[in-house]
Structure formats: structure tokens, C-alpha cells
């Protein structure tokens, strides 16, 4: 009888595996597990066995029934999945275009500005903004610019009928912050600046700058180097080197020009860097004690550094944009190229 059961179970399993439709499953269930199935028949024949063997064999029948039930269930599931898949496959072409939300794009100058802000925020700087329409004091006097300095000319600086002027650099914000807040100060001030330059591939009367200012006890040129190096790496990649070399600005002492190793040729020399291997990034230096005195900070206690960067210049370098004027055309064929640039 046990052999009979085993044979039956094997056959049934085979038949179940051959089921192709939900209907096959229905039939198989009736055939193997239904009232008139052989399994039920075996139950009826339990009486033929000696009493002591009955429970054990009853158990065997139940196990076989359980196995067949689970085989049927899993085969049924397979058949359903196959049907679902087959139905979806009819006339389905996954290569047809998707229905996109059609994102716009940020202006590349905005992208660079936000990236720079992000780098400095990450270094613990704060962002400070100030007015673009400024007075001579904040734009020149407080920055230690001599009265007869050429930058004060109408040829260099835009003046308004009200007697005010358009700031020529965001250093004005440094002065405003130092007037209102005590050190330690760690700020950057991004924003629009104005110089009376005719638009050409590398000039624009309206441009954006980021100034950084750090004032605290014990700030040295070494901190300037650190910050600059961190910034250059964050913006242009870990391989980029930075350096400072002597220069002159009225509001810093010592003053410096900052360079980064050419992002185009990695310092080997090329068209972009005019074969020097270095790219000029902007001016820097240690805040002149005269500037500190102007805003009431004791230069004996505090020292600080400042530097300024042109945002358009960085954008042009990063994206290989050859002419600054392109940035102001607002051609969406240009703008659309920056859809994938995140802020």
C-alpha cells in the first residue's frame, strides 16, 4: 500500500508540473485531491491495515496530500505570473519616449555661485550680503584707497546722480560686517559688482564676486593658504594645487595674487593658462591694520585674511565657456546644457 501511495504521489507531481492553464490546475486538484481521488480511496482502505499501522499510514497520506497541495498552489502562482507577463508584453515597446516633467535649468553663474556658497558653508563660513548701491566710504575710504587712486574715476566706477556709486567689489560687505559684528568673523559675501568696462570676452560691466573674510585671534597667511587650497580642491577636484604670490592691494598687507594649477592642462602649460601652468583666481591678503582701525577692531589683538573671486571667471573655466558675453545672452540652447548641473 505504501508503494502504491508513493507511485501515486510521483505521478501526481509530474502531472501538476505539466499544468498550463488555471483550468488544468482546477482539474488536477479534483483528480488528485478530490472526493473520488485515489488519495481518498487510500484513506478508505486504512481498515485493511493492522490497527497498529493505521495511524502511521494515515500520517503518510496526510503528508502526501500536503505536498500535492503546495505543489498545486505554487504551480498556480507560476501560471498566473506567466499570464500577467504575457499580457503586458503584447505590443509593448519600452523604447518609446517617456513623458518627462521637463525640468528647466539654472544659469551657470548661479550654479557656480551656489557651489561656492556650499563649499564655504561647509567650512563654517557664513554668508553676508550688502547693498550694491554704496557710498564712497565703504567702497574706497574704509578700504584704505587713496583719494587720488585711479579706480575712483568715472572711467572705472559707475556713479549715480544721488552721489552714491555702484560697488566695485564685495569687499564693501567686509567693512559693513566688521562695523556691526565683533570677531571672530568668518564670512563670504557673494553678489553683483560693477566696473565701467566695455563688454568683451573677459570683461563685463556687471559681474559677480565672492569675497571671503576671516578675522580672529591668531589668523595668519597659513590660514589663507589652507582655505584657498580647500576651496580650490572642492571646486576643481582633489588634484588641483593653489599658490599665492606677492601683489599689491591697498586694503591688504601683505597682499597676494592667488593662482590655481591649470585645470585644463594640470600645470603642463596650454592655451588656457597661456603656457604658465597657472590660472589667476583673484586677489588676497592679510587685512591691513589701517582697515581694522577704520572699523574699530584692535589690530594688536586680531588679524585676518580676505580674498575675492570672480564667479563668471570660475564658471567659464569650469565649463570651458570662451566668452563672458555668452553668459548674458540667455539663449536657452546654452542654458539647457546646464540642466544636469545641480546646485
Amino acid at each position: 500500500m505504501e508503494a502504491e501511495l508513493n507511485r501515486f504521489a510521483e505521478e501526481a507531481a509530474e502531472k501538476i508540473a505539466q499544468c498550463r492553464t488555471p483550468n488544468d490546475i482546477l482539474n488536477a486538484r479534483a483528480q488528485f485531491l478530490g472526493k473520488k481521488s485515489m488519495l481518498n480511496g487510500l484513506f478508505a482502505r486504512l481498515r485493511e491495515l493492522p490497527a497498529e499501522q493505521r495511524p502511521a499510514f494515515g500520517q503518510l497520506i496526510n503528508t502526501a496530500r500536503g505536498k500535492l497541495e503546495s505543489l498545486l498552489a505554487s504551480r498556480e502562482q507560476e501560471i498566473k505570473s506567466a499570464a500577467w507577463e504575457a499580457q503586458a508584453a503584447v505590443d509593448f515597446d519600452s523604447s518609446m519616449p517617456g513623458y518627462s516633467w521637463q525640468r528647466g535649468s539654472f544659469h551657470p553663474v548661479s550654479i557656480i555661485r551656489r557651489q561656492i556658497e556650499d563649499v564655504f558653508l561647509g567650512m563654517g563660513f557664513e554668508i553676508a550680503e550688502g547693498p550694491e548701491i554704496e557710498d564712497e566710504f565703504h567702497n574706497f575710504d574704509a578700504l584704505n584707497t587713496p583719494d587720488d587712486h585711479p579706480s575712483r574715476n568715472l572711467a572705472d566706477t559707475f556713479y549715480l546722480e544721488s552721489g552714491k556709486l555702484l560697488r566695485t567689489q564685495t569687499s564693501t560687505v567686509q567693512i559693513r560686517v566688521m562695523e556691526s559684528f565683533k570677531p571672530p568673523i568668518r564670512i563670504i559675501s557673494p553678489g553683483r559688482c560693477y566696473r565701467n568696462d566695455k563688454p568683451d570676452p573677459s570683461h563685463s560691466p556687471v559681474f559677480q564676486q565672492v569675497e571671503a573674510l576671516v578675522v580672529d585671534r591668531g589668523i595668519s597667511m597659513s590660514d589663507l593658504q589652507d582655505t584657498l587650497q580647500n576651496f580650490a580642491r572642492a571646486m576643481f577636484g582633489p588634484q588641483v594645487k593653489s599658490r599665492i604670490r606677492p601683489h599689491f592691494f591697498p586694503f591688504t598687507e601683505p597682499s597676494a595674487e592667488m593662482d590655481i594649477s591649470c585645470v585644463n592642462c594640470s600645470g603642463a602649460g596650454c592655451r588656457v593658462c597661456k603656457n604658465s601652468g597657472w590660472l589667476e583666481m583673484g586677489g588676497a591678503g592679510m587685512v591691513d591694520p589701517a582697515v581694522f582701525k577704520m572699523v574699530g577692531i584692535d589690530p594688536e589683538i586680531y588679524t585676518g585674511f580676505a580674498f575675492g573671486l570672480g564667479i563668471e571667471r570660475i564658471a567659464m573655466l569650469k565649463y570651458d565657456i570662451p566668452d563672458m558675453r555668452i553668459l548674458f545672452e540667455n539663449d536657452i540652447r546654452m542654458l539647457a546644457q546646464f540642466k544636469g548641473e545641480s546646485l
Binding site: 535649468s105 548661479s110 548674458f328
Partner: peptide, 15 residues
Amino acid sequence: DYLVGIGFYETLNYS
């Protein structure tokens, strides 16, 4: 971010 997200192109003009 919102405006660019719903499809706007950001322009930059002189002040």
C-alpha cells in the same frame, strides 16, 4: 529651485 523644477530657465541680465 522650485521654478527650475517646474521647467523654467534662469536668465541673467545686467542690473
